[in-house]
C-alpha cells in the first residue's frame, strides 16, 4: 500500500500536451494571430462596404433570377468553342511536353545541360498561371482562340511534363538493362522498354489535365482569349444579369459533364 500513498490521485496532473508541444502551439497561434491582425489592420478595405456586402451579393443574386435563356444558342456555341480550345490545346501540348519530360527526367536526359533546360521549361510553365499566359498571348496575337489555345498549352506543358518526367524516373530499370544487353540502341530502348512502362501514367495524366483545362478555358475569354468567357464578360459589361445566370448554369453543366466523361475514360482506358 506504500505506492498508493506516494502517488495519491490529487497529485496526478494530466495534460494533453507536454511543455515543448504547448510552447510550439502557443507560438503558432501567436504568429497566426499577429498575421491576421496585421492583415486586417493594414488591408486597403473600406469597412462599411464589408458590412454592406451580404446585401449587395443578395441584390446581385436577385437581379440574376430568373435565368434568361434567350441567348442559349450563342452560349452553346461558345461552350463548344471552350471545349475545342481545351481539347486541341491538350492534344497539341503532348508534342511539346513529351520531349521536355524526356530531357527533364534524370534517367533519360542526354546531358546535364538538357536536364537543366528541361527543368527550367517546366518551372517557367508552371509558375505562370493560364490567365497570365493568356494576357501575354492576347497582347501578341490579338484577342481570339489562338491566344487561348497557346495559353492553355503553355501552362499544360509544365503540368504534363513534370508528371511524365516523374513517371519516367520511376520506371523499372531492369527491362532497360536487358534491352541494353541485347545490343539495342538508345532509341530502340526508349520505344521498347520505356514507352510501354509509362503508357498508363501518360493516359491518366492526359485525362486529368484535360479535365483541368476545361475549367481553365472557361475564363480565357475574360481577357479576350476566346470561349464562353467572352460572352460572360459581355453580359456582365451590359448588366445582362439573367444571361449571366444562364452562362453560370451552363458552365456548371459543362464542368460536371467533363468530370463524368473523365471518370468514364479513366475506368475504360486504365
Amino acid at each position: 500500500m506504500v505506492e498508493e500513498q506516494a502517488e495519491r490521485p490529487a497529485d496526478r496532473i494530466w495534460r494533453r500536451y507536454d511543455r515543448r508541444q504547448r510552447l510550439i502551439h502557443y507560438a503558432v497561434v501567436l504568429a497566426v494571430t499577429m498575421a491576421v491582425v496585421w492583415a486586417v489592420h493594414d488591408i486597403d478595405i473600406f469597412w462599411p462596404w464589408v458590412w454592406d456586402a451580404p446585401n449587395q451579393i443578395s441584390n446581385l443574386g436577385a437581379r440574376m433570377w430568373p435565368p434568361d435563356p434567350t441567348r442559349l444558342g450563342a452560349i452553346v456555341a461558345a461552350m463548344l468553342e471552350t471545349v475545342h480550345i481545351a481539347t486541341l490545346a491538350t492534344m497539341l501540348t503532348v508534342f511539346i511536353a513529351l520531349p521536355v519530360s524526356y530531357i527533364a527526367a534524370q534517367n533519360t536526359t542526354p546531358n546535364r545541360a538538357c536536364l537543366w533546360l528541361g527543368r527550367f521549361i517546366l518551372v517557367a510553365s508552371r509558375s505562370v498561371n493560364t490567365i497570365i499566359w493568356a494576357l501575354l498571348f492576347v497582347a501578341i496575337f490579338g484577342p481570339g482562340v489562338l491566344a487561348g489555345i497557346l495559353a492553355i498549352m503553355f501552362r499544360s506543358v509544365g503540368f504534363i511534363g513534370k508528371l511524365m518526367g516523374e513517371a519516367i524516373e520511376e520506371i523499372d530499370r531492369r527491362p532497360v538493362e536487358a534491352m541494353e544487353a541485347t545490343g539495342a540502341s538508345k532509341a530502340k530502348i526508349i520505344v521498347y522498354a520505356v514507352v510501354p512502362q509509362v503508357m498508363p501514367a501518360f493516359f491518366a495524366i492526359l485525362i486529368l489535365r484535360w479535365d483541368i483545362n476545361i475549367r481553365e478555358s472557361t475564363v480565357l475569354g475574360l481577357v479576350g482569349a476566346g470561349g464562353i468567357g467572352v460572352i460572360l464578360q459581355g453580359a456582365i459589361d451590359t448588366f445582362a444579369w439573367p444571361t449571366v445566370a444562364t452562362i453560370l448554369v451552363a458552365i456548371i453543366a459543362l464542368v460536371l459533364i467533363g468530370e463524368a466523361l473523365t471518370s468514364l475514360l479513366r475506368r475504360k482506358v486504365l
Binding site: D172, Y192, Q197
Partner: peptide
C-alpha cells in the same frame, strides 16, 4: 544474358 529478375517488359 539471362537475369535474376527476368527483366521482361511486363506490359
Amino acid at each position: 544474358m539471362v537475369f535474376q529478375g527476368f527483366n521482361l517488359i511486363d506490359r
